[in-house]
C-alpha cells in the first residue's frame, strides 16, 4: 500500500532528526535544512544515504541536491541564476518550488529551497515512480 503524505513526513522527520541531531518536533514541513536545522554540505550526503535506507530506493548524485550548476556561466552570472539556469534546475529538480525564488534568484538563496517539504515531495515522487518503501 502506498505511503500516505503523513507517513512520509514522519519518516523524513526521523531521518532529519538523526542526521542533524535535532528534536523531531523541530522538523516542520516549512523548515529549511540549512537555515533552520543547521545542515552543512556533508549532511546532504548523509541525508541521501539515510533516505535510501529508509525508503529502499536509490538516489543518483545530483538528483536530490544540486551539483555542477554553479560553475556554468550559461546558468549562473554575477552570482544569480539566469533564466536558463532556473529552467535547468526546474527540470532536474521538480521537487523544488522556484516560484518565489525566480524573483530574486541569487545563488546564495538556493539553499532556502531545500526544505522538509521539498524532501517529502522528492520521496513522494520517487515512490510513485516505482521506488519501494522499506518496511522499517
Amino acid at each position: 500500500m502506498a505511503m500516505s503524505r503523513d507517513e512520509i513526513f514522519k519518516s523524513v522527520q526521523v531521518v532529519l532528526a538523526e542526521t542533524l541531531m535535532v528534536d523531531e518536533e523541530e522538523v516542520l514541513p516549512e523548515s529549511s535544512l540549512v537555515k533552520d536545522l543547521g545542515a552543512e554540505s556533508i549532511d546532504f550526503l548523509d541525508i541521501v544515504f539515510r533516505l535510501e535506507k529508509k525508503f529502499g530506493f536509490k538516489i543518483q548524485q545530483g538528483e536530490l541536491f544540486t551539483e555542477n550548476v554553479m560553475s556554468d556561466p550559461k546558468l549562473v552570472q554575477d552570482g544569480r541564476f539566469t533564466a536558463d539556469g532556473i529552467e535547468v534546475l526546474s527540470q532536474k529538480m521538480p521537487h523544488l518550488n522556484f516560484t518565489a525564488f525566480s524573483a530574486d534568484p541569487r545563488v546564495d538563496r538556493l539553499s532556502e529551497l531545500f526544505t522538509v517539504r521539498a524532501l517529502m515531495d522528492f520521496v513522494e515522487r520517487k515512490l510513485a515512480a516505482g521506488g519501494v518503501p522499506a518496511t522499517n
Binding site: S41, I42, F44, L45, F65, T66, E67, M70, S71
Partner: peptide, 12 residues
C-alpha cells in the same frame, strides 16, 4: 563516520 570524496563534494 561519514567520508567525503572531496573532489566531488557538494560545495563544489
Amino acid at each position: 563516520l561519514m567520508f567525503s570524496h572531496i573532489d566531488r563534494n557538494f560545495a563544489g
